[in-house]
Design a binder for these strands. Structure first.
Length: 172
DNA sequence: CCCTGATTCGC
DNA sequence: GCGAATCAGG
């Protein structure tokens, strides 16, 4: 793919808007992030803020971080249900609204429905591609949590995605 | 490991 | 001029 005037313009626009090189490459299509970065340099576009000429690393230094409050939207608890019919005991996951439940003890067997709110262009082989929200609205995003074994979804959403087909109940 | 931008250098 | 490979960093 060659750098047409249109593509160069789009590059300039997106770069000035602060998008990352990989995001721009994804939108342009047909080019790698390296190509984008290389082009940015050739165009002498202002790079991203670094150290202004000084070779000094001068790292910002992370202040002693205050403990963050858990930001879970909801958590899942496990419940044991006995089935009289087959005498089978199985575990069932139930989503519990935390907004109504202000206090809770951090539990080890809680799965995480917390999303990383990734943009479409930020998804990779290892990120959960479960869509959240209305695609036509701004707040639309993807879960983005780590997906094991290159699964398209994280553990939580894989459960939702791969639910066994609903029991067919004959309407008699 | 995921990601970021910067630089080099063979094409 | 182009961009993969590499480097350096978060």
């Amino acid at each position: 793919m060659n750098w047409t005037d249109e593509r160069v313009e789009k590059l300039k626009k997106l770069w000035s808007e602060g998008l990352s090189a990989s995001q721009i490459a994804a939108q342009l299509g047909g080019v790698s992030r390296n190509a984008v970065i290389g082009k940015v340099h050739r165009l002498s576009l202002p790079g991203r803020a670094k150290a202004g000429g000084t070779t000094t690393p001068a790292r910002p230094k992370r202040a002693t971080s205050a403990p963050r409050a858990p930001n879970y939207a909801a958590r899942a608890v496990t419940r044991t249900v006995a089935r009289p019919a087959g005498a089978t005991v199985l575990k069932e996951e139930v989503a519990v609204d935390l907004v109504a439940e202000q206090e809770f003890a951090p539990d080890a067997n809680i799965v995480l429905p917390m999303s990383r709110r990734l943009e479409l262009t930020q998804l990779t082989e290892r990120t959960c591609k479960w869509p959240i929200g209305d695609p036509l609205k701004e707040e639309f995003h993807f879960c983005g949590n780590d997906s094991p074994e290159s699964s398209p979804y994280c553990n939580y959403h894989a459960r939702l995605a791969y639910q066994p087909s609903a029991e067919r109940r004959r309407i008699r």
